[in-house]
């Protein structure tokens, strides 16, 4: 009997480890042009290498990249570090952050149902937003989704503002306190992200992992 095999079943069979999905929501609007986008690109590459170097995180952490600069684009669908090839980002256009957040939550829902179909456990997903501006579209619906997602523990939403970010709006979108990146320390930010995810991937799917506070002295952020 030729049974149906759901999409992705093969890769899930070869790697049935529990997954820790993470959507990177990256602002690639025009204002990021120049040094910020370069630093972000370098940070992404380093992030990939950090994840790939960790035996458990490389099997468990799955990254997707959604960019918003002019338009919302799913640059990279979920994959483990092994198949995560960050392409160099370029910055242009406005900041449709609201749409991007909605897209990220949609991506997560789809991914989660794929996990369920394939008998794959998963940790609470992360959405990690990095921006240097404020939304240029309607963001209220997105904020509502974030609120519901956090309340139902469907995902954790982190937001990081680069110099020039509208932290007031971020505060209204994010349930967690938005963090302010110190200068262009994207490398430190991604180091922290990969460390946190390594810790999460070592924990149990039901645990609340206590993360290192990035806003502590010497950290890459301030609140």
């Amino acid at each position: 009997m030729a049974e149906q095999v759901p999409f992705g079943a093969l890769s899930f069979a070869e790697n049935p480890e529990p997954r820790c999905p993470c959507v990177l929501l990256l602002d690639t609007s025009g204002s990021m042009n120049g040094r910020p986008i370069e630093a972000l690109n370098a940070g992404l590459l380093q992030y990939r290498d950090e994840l790939a170097a960790d035996s458990l995180a490389s099997k468990r952490v799955e990254v997707a990249v959604v960019t918003f600069g002019g338009q919302v684009q799913t640059l990279h669908d979920f994959s483990t570090a092994e198949a995560f090839f960050p392409t160099a980002l370029t910055a242009e256009g406005n900041t449709p952050m609201g749409e991007a957040i909605v897209r990220a939550t949609d991506l997560l829902s789809a991914r989660k149902s794929l996990y369920r179909q394939n008998g794959i456990l998963f940790y609470r997903p992360w959405i990690f937003l990095i921006t240097d501006g404020g939304p240029t579209d309607a963001w209220q619906a997105a904020a509502e989704r974030v609120r519901q997602g956090e309340a139902s523990k469907a995902f954790s939403f982190f937001s990081v503002g680069v110099e020039g970010a509208n932290l007031d709006v971020l505060k209204q979108i994010s349930v967690r306190e938005p963090l302010k990146l110190d200068g262009l320390r994207f490398r430190d930010l991604f180091q922290w992200l990969s460390n946190s995810q390594k810790a999460v991937s070592r924990s149990q799917t039901t645990d609340e992992v206590r993360l290192v506070n990035p806003a502590a002295p010497g950290g890459w952020a301030s609140v």
Partner: peptide, 15 residues
Amino acid sequence: KPIHLLYSTASRRKE
């Protein structure tokens, strides 16, 4: 090596 590297296929092929 940690046992999880052996039992899942993708990492077994490597390790």
